[in-house]
């Protein structure tokens, strides 16, 4: 199986909410330099989904990672290589900055056409900055291939199909999809593997391929290729009016809490 995984470098979503600062001039959020960016966690799970398939037949399987952005930190974007992916392509240029899902998916589609034939594309269900969740489905539409979103299990079957378990509100759907296809992956898939020392060593020796918009035949990228516009980005003010109930012991505080809820007609 020839597999492609799209991975995005993002602000660390697990960092404390207080680390997120508004950069109003550029309509984006920033974090202080000591908070290091990460690969979007759902994208790591997408890498995991591809690697699980690669594990089944190492000889014929290949996993190519594509990341888009500007000033990408090599040790961050190389993480999928250290987990076991084979190749890394960076769409890296100032012109890629400031895009929406449409701009990003259009550039990814152009890059994937340049990469050549593939069987499966994996994406995370959504990235943790804009939380949009459109790039996967949109990319599939642009490439004219079927898509399944929010998968928790993917199995290659004989006869050119994959069996996918897709998470829905009260359980999961089991679908059979013809490939080439695109699958977005959710945390229900299970934890992504850690990079091994051997993997980190191998990754450090690999040089990513870097493509600019002209290399993939894209004349409008990033902010220039947007279909939507941000009118305003803002941080709502939180009032923080928690009534902390204190007593001589935690147990007494617990009982007092029940009383407070009763007085306020909550229970």
């Amino acid at each position: 199986m020839n597999m492609i995984v799209c991975c995005k470098q993002v602000l660390d979503p697990e960092a404390a909410p207080s680390t997120f600062k508004l950069d109003a001039a550029n309509n984006r959020m920033v974090q202080p330099p000591e908070v290091k960016p990460v690969i979007n966690p759902y994208d790591e799970q997408a890498v995991e989904a591809a690697l699980r398939i690669k594990d089944t037949d190492k000889a014929g399987n290949k996993v190519t990672i594509i990341s888009l952005g500007n000033n990408l930190l090599r040790d961050v974007v190389k993480k999928p290589l250290s987990m076991g992916a084979d190749e890394l392509i960076l769409l890296e240029d100032p012109a890629f900055e400031g895009g929406d899902s449409y701009a990003v998916a259009s550039a990814l589609a152009a890059a994937i056409k340049k990469v050549g034939p593939f069987d499966l594309i994996f994406c995370g269900r959504q990235e943790s900055e804009w939380d949009d969740g459109q790039v996967g489905s949109g990319l599939a539409e642009l490439l004219g291939i079927p898509s399944v979103t929010v998968a928790k299990k993917v199995e290659v079957q004989s006869g050119g199909t994959v069996k996918v378990e897709r998470v829905v509100a009260d359980g999961f759907q089991v679908l059979e999809v013809q490939y080439p296809a695109l699958i977005t992956v959710s945390n229900e898939l299970g934890e992504a593997r850690y990079a091994t020392l051997k993997g980190i060593m191998a990754a450090s020796k690999k040089q990513p391929i870097v493509w600019k918009p002209a290399d993939i035949g894209v004349d409008k990228a990033g902010a220039a290729a947007r279909k939507t516009r941000v009118v305003k980005l803002f941080q709502p003010v939180k009032e923080g009016k928690c009534d902390i109930i204190s007593a001589d012991s935690p147990a007494e505080a617990g009982a007092l809490l029940a009383q407070k809820l009763r007085e306020n007609k909550v229970i």
Binding site: P250, A253, L257
Partner: peptide
């Protein structure tokens, strides 16, 4: 509303009340 404390102690007392 909040209680700062170990849930193992706070919760049984809260529940009983």
């Amino acid at each position: 509303f909040g209680v700062v404390g170990d849930w193992k102690v706070v919760l049984p007392a809260f529940m009983a009340k």
